Computed example of a mutant assay.
Amino acid sequence: MDQQRILTILLNYRTPEMTLQAAAAALREMENLPGELLIIDNGSGDGSYEQIRAQAEARGWLASGCLRVIAAPVNGGFGAGMNIGIKAGLSDGSAPEFYYLLNSDAFVQGRTIRTLRDFLLEHPGAGLAGSYVRGTDGTPHRTAFRFPSIAGEFEASVRTGMFTRLLKPWVVAMDLPQAELQVDWTAGASLMIRREAAAAVGGFDETFFLYFEETDLCRRAARAGWRTHYVPASEIAHVGSASTGMKAWQRTPHYWFDSRRHYFVKHHGHAYAAAATLARAAGSLIYGLRRLIQNKPQADPPYFLRDLILYSLRAMAAPRPEPSQETRPPSSLAKEPK
């Protein structure tokens, strides 16, 4: 019988101490699991690679053969970094049976990795499985999602109970499931992917720098016949936005708008993408009116609506290539074991 090996891929961007903590927790879990841990420094350029490698050597991780550290030449984003790990495979050059993607600010909790692997072993049609995520303060994070849509964009921006109830089938962030559930997509902070599913979709689309890359991956996997599941028995503690600084955004970065537009155009076409933006803007305007009347708190980063409209107008004026289902995967995935 196959060993059912797991390659845990841990992506670092300028958080070396936190990455080492996440690696230590993952290695403790993997002591009795076949596989390896691969840390990729995603073009940090701040000495992170050297610091992580030195600490890994000092702790005996490198000599044990259970861990490798790779430096990406540039920061191509989350998907590009993970593709490097998928392409690298195990230290013997073969592909594992499972890839486990783990954020540098995510800490496994005892049987996180084994639970996801066992779930995929027990459910042959499941290609991807994600964990229950809680903050380090114990606050649950909603990480079971539906695919974005025009109705979902409106609901997310209008932030009004009446519309949420009316549009419930399209609300992107689902109520926290208490049991295992098939979902459209789940967060990449703790995500296990079957080798065959990874091969079927060719890895991440590297056009996405950050955000929407997991959404796109799960959507392409679904089209290839692979299900995505949320598995709450698998748990991680997650700091959240440690590398991206999302919680402290003073303006929404350009790459978020790029990723959002690429997702909608790629999967639905230009007209649908424009309608989704109109729905988001309409919802934001309604919520803005409620803020004036009811003293509601600011929910989006400053100037979000203005930035969304200006970005969309510039994008509409630019040349419009036909939407493509093609991705920019690694040049080849690691070879399957002989």
Rank of each mutant, 00 (worst) to 15 (best):
238 H>R: 11
238 H>N: 10
238 H>S: 07
238 H>L: 08
239 V>C: 05
240 G>M: 03
240 G>N: 09
240 G>F: 15
240 G>A: 04
241 S>P: 01
241 S>V: 00
242 A>V: 02
242 A>S: 12
242 A>T: 03
242 A>E: 14
242 A>I: 02
242 A>Q: 13
243 S>Q: 11
243 S>E: 11
243 S>D: 12
244 T>S: 03
244 T>Y: 07
244 T>L: 04
245 G>M: 13
245 G>D: 13
246 M>D: 04
246 M>P: 07
247 K>F: 06
248 A>K: 09
248 A>I: 04
249 W>K: 14
250 Q>F: 09
250 Q>N: 09
250 Q>K: 11
250 Q>S: 10
251 R>M: 07
251 R>A: 07
251 R>D: 01
251 R>G: 00
252 T>N: 10
252 T>E: 14
252 T>W: 14
252 T>M: 15
254 H>M: 11
254 H>Y: 09
254 H>V: 03
254 H>P: 11
255 Y>I: 10
256 W>H: 09
257 F>V: 06
257 F>G: 06
258 D>T: 09
258 D>Q: 10
259 S>C: 06
259 S>N: 15
259 S>R: 08
259 S>G: 06
259 S>A: 15
259 S>P: 15
261 R>C: 00
262 H>I: 06
262 H>Y: 14
262 H>Q: 15
262 H>L: 08
262 H>C: 11
262 H>N: 12
263 Y>V: 02
263 Y>Q: 11
264 F>K: 06
264 F>W: 03
264 F>C: 03
265 V>G: 03
265 V>A: 01
265 V>I: 06
265 V>H: 05
265 V>N: 02
265 V>C: 00
266 K>A: 08
266 K>T: 06
266 K>L: 02
266 K>Y: 05
266 K>F: 07
266 K>E: 07
266 K>P: 05
267 H>Y: 12
267 H>P: 15
267 H>G: 07
268 H>M: 14
268 H>Y: 15
268 H>W: 14
268 H>N: 12
269 G>S: 04
269 G>L: 12
269 G>N: 12
269 G>F: 11
269 G>H: 15
269 G>P: 14
270 H>F: 04
270 H>I: 07
270 H>D: 05
271 A>V: 13
271 A>M: 11
